[in-house]
Structures are given as structure tokens and as C-alpha cells.
């Protein structure tokens, strides 16, 4: 009962694409089945398993990466669509020799337990802090016309797209608060 075998491995040319994408600062080129999501491209083709698959449907946030600097859920992005763009994953957050302040704060505040949601939390927080510095409002921002202050309520709302079943939420909020305050 064996199927088409190795010959069937690569999907034909019409259904695949050559994709060039900058990942964590390095240009990568791969041929991918058009169906391959950015998440699966990272995990299965580029050996970047930092981004996690928690739901595969945009519902948990574990797969969050930065696409052209903005946080997105990579499980709902076809890799072929990011041709020519740049991606930063959790593997790209740290400096060459040391952790980023956000990562260090996550450790200091014990902002994770099993660690499975953590790469997504980190990338989400990174993107979120940029959104705040751009003055973007959130659902809990009182006055839409003045830049929001990063209260705990703001952090909680803005991080709501990242579920954590271990429920490290209060510590995640603390880590983000500290990172924001010191930057």
C-alpha cells in the first residue's frame, strides 16, 4: 500500500514557488509548496523551531513572529506571500552575546512555565511595544486621540492574543512592564 513514493515528494512547479526571505538578518532561499505556511517553512525547512505550533489556526499566538517588524501569526501566512520580506523569530531576538532585555525580564519574572507559548509571547511583546511607541491605541484606551500610557490593563489587552495554558499571565505582564519602563 505504498503511494507515489519519493517521486511524489516535490510538488510540481505550478504549485510551488521559489521564495527568498530574510530571516533573522540572513537571506534564505527555499523552494516551497505554495501550501506551506510561514510557520511550517521556519520549522520544517529552515530548522528554526523557535516559533511554535499551538493551534495552526490563529487562535493561540504561539507562532507569533515579526514580519517586516510587525507581529503576525505565522500559521496563517503562506510563506510564498512573504517573498522579499523580512522575518524575525524568537531566535533572532537576542544579541550576539546576550539576551535582549525582554528575554532577560521573562526569565527574571518567571514569565513562562512549559515555555511552549513563550517564543510567541516574546515576539508579540516585542511587536506590541513598537505599536505603543507609535502611539497606537487599544480596546482599553480611554481617549483615542492621545497616545496611550502603558498601564497593566493596556498590556493585558494588547497581549490577549497570546494564550498561555500554564497561565504565566501576571508574570508576563510584569516582564513587559519592566522592559517598557527601562527602554
Amino acid at each position: 500500500m505504498q503511494g507515489g513514493g519519493e517521486n511524489a515528494t516535490t510538488i510540481d512547479e505550478r504549485h510551488s514557488s521559489r521564495v527568498t526571505v530574510e530571516v533573522n538578518g540572513a537571506s534564505r532561499e527555499v523552494t516551497l509548496d505554495n501550501r506551506t505556511t510561514l510557520l511550517d517553512a521556519l520549522r520544517e525547512h529552515l530548522d528554526l523551531t523557535g516559533a511554535k505550533k499551538g493551534c495552526d489556526h490563529g487562535q493561540c499566538g504561539s507562532c507569533t513572529v515579526l514580519l517586516d517588524g510587525r507581529r503576525v501569526k505565522s500559521c496563517l501566512v503562506f510563506a510564498v506571500t512573504v517573498d522579499g520580506r523580512s522575518v524575525v523569530t524568537v531566535e533572532g531576538l537576542a544579541g550576539p552575546d546576550e539576551l535582549s532585555p525582554l528575554q532577560a525580564a521573562f526569565i527574571a519574572h518567571d514569565a513562562f512555565q512549559c515555555g511552549y507559548c513563550t517564543p510567541g509571547q516574546l515576539c508579540s511583546a516585542r511587536g506590541m511595544l513598537d505599536e505603543v511607541s507609535r502611539g497606537w491605541p487599544s480596546a482599553v484606551t480611554g481617549d483615542l486621540n492621545t497616545p496611550a500610557k502603558l498601564t497593566d490593563a493596556e498590556i493585558r489587552e494588547r497581549m490577549a492574543g497570546n494564550l498561555c495554558r500554564c497561565a504565566a499571565y501576571p508574570h508576563i505582564v510584569a516582564a513587559v512592564r519592566q522592559t517598557a519602563a527601562s527602554s
Binding site: R43, L48, T49, G50, A51, K52, T89, V90, E91, L93, A94, L99, Q103, F106, I107, A108, D110, F112, G115, Y116, T118, P119, L122
Partner: peptide, 18 residues
Amino acid sequence: PRLEGAAKVTGTARYAVE
């Protein structure tokens, strides 16, 4: 702090299908 903390925040901790 957790011993595997750095591995978890840098994405190098490997889980079952990684």
C-alpha cells in the same frame, strides 16, 4: 531562575517534533 530559562526564551529548547 529556571535552568532551562535561556533555552526557552531563545527558542533553542526542543520539543517533541523539533
